[in-house]
Nucleic acid binder design. Structure first.
Lengths: 197, 197
DNA sequence: CGATTTTTTGAATCATATCAACGTACGTGG
DNA sequence: CCACGTACGTTGATATGATTCAAAAAATCG
């Protein structure tokens, strides 16, 4: 059950068998069917979830009830509302499975415990946060500097297979576009492509 | 020279006098006059800078040669291009003093050394990265969900005195607006305010 | 003071959003 | 297996918020 989880950790840190035992005593495996939620806005985010299989999304709903996707988490990724998880304030995010998924959940208490009991896990989180910060900064600058078309192409460069897994309107939401705009962008691109050949 | 720096660290971690001695041997104090640069794009970012006094900005220039401000760093903040600093790839950011400033510089080698020699510094950076990630996520969502006017008001709520220190066109750049748009937003707001009274 | 930088204002333009309708595909229950 | 409902994607017409360009006004600096 926890193999993928341990493999992920092992890519960045050194995990002993003893560490794995400790982890296995402090994490919970959970399955979610498509469209089930790990977190609803208003709740306190109780877990960091590692995605063993499947895929989740976190999103926020604004005053005009438009959804804005913060993050996609396919297998091998983590997802949470870190702000709520740390502060124990109510979250304004929703986290939903967009495919049937298997998760490894780490509660707040376990997270704190594990960082002490397994110093390498503390280091792992250090690297995660740092990497997430850098990646998010890239996303912000592409939001500022690119047109709708460029944003879409840029995303495809980073995640070439994303269109095969994620509904188009969710991609639009992630990019900060409307579904209609993305549809038109794609149409224009396929036209360009056919002209080009 | 390093008092502000140590005070900043001490807000989140416990620093011993011995730690302070170690730090003092591995950091460099540098002064920058207004308009001087800590980093030009194309260079490798060699330092993380703590701002003792003054204020810096980091920004990126896009293909249309528009500037986009990534971060402001007034006294008490850190600034760097973390991506370039870590990977030692060329940076595409510029870091410039927008006021005469005094900085405490930590080189890459020193940063790595200090994280080992002063475990609390490792913890400090963990907290910094985590906090920076959360803050950046808020900024991204406000970019997605708010109008120009709302973005400006939102910024004033977070940094009430920012207009007193930063030229207006830089605020616009930080918010992802043109200087003209921000000027019009402000005009509209002062009108609203006067009507309201 | 003159010179440069910054902010303001106006008019035209543009990219994207909005609203509404339609087409298509999918999956579930009858 | 068909029919119906729901979700998803496309298309068109129109609206809108923000940008662009240009120039004047105001502020700042040496």
């Amino acid at each position: 059950m926890l193999n993928d989880f341990f493999n992920k950790l092992s890519k960045n840190i050194l995990l002993t068998e003893a560490d794995k035992v400790i982890f296995s005593q402090h994490v919970v495996v959970k399955k979610l069917r498509k469209r089930q939620y790990l977190l609803h806005e208003g709740e306190i985010c109780k877990h960091v979830a590692f995605v063993n299989s499947g895929m989740l999304r976190s999103y926020l709903v604004d005053e005009k009830s438009n959804e804005h996707i913060i993050q996609f988490a396919p297998e091998g990724w983590f997802i949470s509302d870190l702000y709520s998880f740390i502060t124990e304030d109510a979250s304004n995010l929703n986290i939903e499975a967009i495919e049937s998924s298997e998760l490894v959940l780490v509660s707040r208490a376990s997270h704190i415990y594990l960082e002490k009991a397994v110093p390498e896990f503390f280091k792992f989180n250090y690297l995660q946060y740092r990497g997430a910060y850098i990646a998010l900064q890239k996303r912000l600058t592409s939001t500022f500097t690119l047109s709708a078309e460029e944003k879409y192409i840029n995303l495809l460069n980073i995640y070439p297979d994303i269109m095969q897994r994620v509904p188009q309107h969710m991609i639009a939401s992630y990019l900060g576009l409307t579904a209609e705009t993305l549809s038109r962008v794609r149409k224009k691109l396929t036209k360009k492509k056919s002209e080009h050949s």
